[in-house]
């Protein structure tokens, strides 16, 4: 049984930037996501990938989304780290803990992401790569059953991106990932849905062989 079922056939999802516009942003997109699967939505900027993520998580109203096993606890990693600048890194993470969650897990979580000793610092002391890792720590602290990643590796240097990739791969939580970077998508996803057109539809589906991820990246570049 799938964990998530998306079927936007028959629903018009307008662009958030042009509310009321006649032309819908998303077309009849339909796909399933199995438990433990990492699915990537790959497409050009502005094609509605983030809108689709928000729709799936219920952050914008819409229809065509079903969670056959019940809605899991979700956590996001946004393109911008979106840390509260007036709270320390540890406090930012603590805010995402589920009710009754133990703050004591935070130092180990930070350590695992290479941020040991940075818990007491304010986010403006962190580089973008560190802030992005802190945002991942926050998402993981929420004990998610489903991850939503919006360009999590965008504009990171190679070593930061690799460190993040490893952390995300190790957890292997069911994940919906959005990116326009073929390398990121190929490195993380089990299956890639290539989006395009206007309104946006799924143009192609690529199943990624974990032993030959570079081939998936080449296919996406092509």
């Amino acid at each position: 049984m799938s964990l998530l079922r998306v079927d936007l056939s028959g629903y018009a999802i307008p662009s958030p930037a042009s509310a009321g516009a006649m032309q819908p942003l998303l077309g009849p997109i339909a796909f399933d996501l199995a438990p433990g699967e990492v699915v990537a939505l790959f497409g050009p900027s502005g094609c509605g990938k983030t809108t689709l993520l928000k729709l799936i998580d219920g952050l914008i109203p819409g229809a065509g989304i079903a969670w056959p096993k019940g809605k899991p606890r979700t956590a996001w990693v946004f393109q911008e780290p979106s840390l509260l600048p007036w709270r320390s890194v540890a406090d930012n993470i603590a805010l995402a803990l589920p009710q009754g969650g133990d703050r004591a897990i935070i130092p180990a979580l930070l350590e695992s992401l290479g941020l040991g000793g940075w818990g007491g610092s304010f986010p403006n002391r962190l580089s973008l790569g560190m802030a992005r890792r802190a945002a991942v720590a926050r998402a993981l602290a929420a004990s998610p059953e489903f991850l939503l990643l919006d360009e999590p590796l965008a504009s990171l240097d190679a070593s930061s991106a690799e460190a993040l990739r490893q952390v995300l791969q190790k957890r292997h939580l069911p994940t919906l990932l959005v990116s326009h970077d073929p390398a990121d998508v190929a490195a993380l996803a089990d299956r890639v849905l290539v989006l395009g057109g206007s309104p946006t539809v799924i143009r192609d589906t690529i199943v990624v062989d974990p032993t030959q991820r570079h081939r998936a990246a080449q296919l996406l570049i092509g």
């Binding site: 952050l59 979700t74 996001w76 979106s82 509260l84 805010l95 995402a96």
Partner: peptide
Amino acid sequence: PQLNLMARAFRFGPWTSFRHVALP
């Protein structure tokens, strides 16, 4: 709006959102 979205995504309650996101 990005911090507001974050608060909603992490299901902050109204008081937590006000105290930790809006008030500062």
